[in-house]
Write a protein that binds this DNA or RNA. Structure first.
Lengths: 192, 192
DNA sequence: GTCTATATACAGATAGAC
DNA sequence: GTCTATCTGTATATAGAC
């Protein structure tokens, strides 16, 4: 592996675990077995390195939803919820990292955060569309407003995940809560 | 106001806005109009100052629930949800601050975090108790398991709040989501 | 208790040899 | 591209006068 990549990988790991400020370039250099000067040669500044790390991390973030065919709307909702949960558990470290970045007011590279927010909105829209379609086709109750209910489902998912991040004293593990979420926020909406 | 208090107040504000690492004692000293040396005289180390700030911030965190009398169980649940939301909005800065601390693996003063988790569990238990009582007295459906449903309500609340912290592109403001939460997770449980 | 002056360490960043 | 050596600023922390 070339030095540049080595630096990127090391920096990604260190930024994610210790945060931007607590990660010194001397630390990165030592962990990547290169000199500090080489980091500057490749990335100019610490800030640039950070940007490169963020881009690299975000890059594989996508939503693929080709396997919803053949399911009715309540089942599609359950599936979408599972996909979201799977995505986050597969990317715990970086998702936690980005959440931490979102929670501070400074140092928000708008381009990248825009990208994340776009994905987020896309997912929410997907949920809302399925709900609306289900209502149209009579598989879901018309009692709820699709967009609002979609937002509520997503909030709940986020809440469950944050609780998992915090290492909640868990009387109830995340999986269990996600199941309860599907039961309460999807199944109860089914038209009998 | 004495210098010690002045330092504490200033440090509280700066730590909460910029985080531990990005807040230098020179910065605190200047903002509090004292010398750096005085900070060390009062608090020995930066770490100690931080601890003192956390204790001071957590101190007023309490749950008072004396005004639930005369409400039936569904109404009590709605009230408890509102109280949680009010508490967080009244303490946005420090709550966000603590959430950020929870999300990093290092630098977790266990004594303080224990205190917060205790409050959290207490609140969850409160919700669970009300649900169980409502089921016993026939005002709430027996379809849900009290403790699990309480955890779900709390997760949802947290999710809504986190979304608010992130400055979500809000098609739906937090208040709206909390209303929807009460409708979906409480009112739908009412026994007709 | 509060200050000025200073010690010491390490951060981000540059110069220049190879 | 990669290194060693170095500059410059600023961080936490201490010494000692008042």
């Amino acid at each position: 592996m070339d030095a540049r990549t080595k630096i990127l990988e090391t920096a990604t790991r260190l930024f994610a675990t210790h945060g931007y400020d607590s990660t010194s370039l001397s630390h990165v250099a030592k962990a990547a077995s290169v000199s500090k000067a080489l980091i500057f040669w490749h990335f100019e500044t610490k800030e640039n390195l950070f940007q490169a790390v963020l881009s690299r991390t975000i890059e594989p973030y996508t939503i693929d939803i080709d396997d919803l065919d053949g399911l009715n709307e309540p089942e599609q909702l359950r599936r979408l919820i599972d996909l979201y949960y799977e995505f986050v558990t597969e990317n715990v470290f970086s998702v936690r990292f980005f959440l931490r970045l979102f929670l501070r007011e400074e140092k928000r590279p708008d381009n990248l955060f825009g990208r994340i927010l776009d994905l987020y909105r896309l997912y929410q829209q997907l949920l809302a569309d399925v709900i609306a379609r289900g209502q149209g086709r009579g598989t879901l109750s018309r009692e709820v407003e699709p967009s609002l209910h979609a937002a509520l489902i997503l909030s709940t998912l986020n809440g469950v995940l944050v609780q998992g991040f915090m290492g909640e004293p868990e009387p109830h593990p995340p999986q269990r809560l996600v199941e309860q979420l599907k039961t309460t926020l999807v199944d109860r909406l089914r038209v009998q």
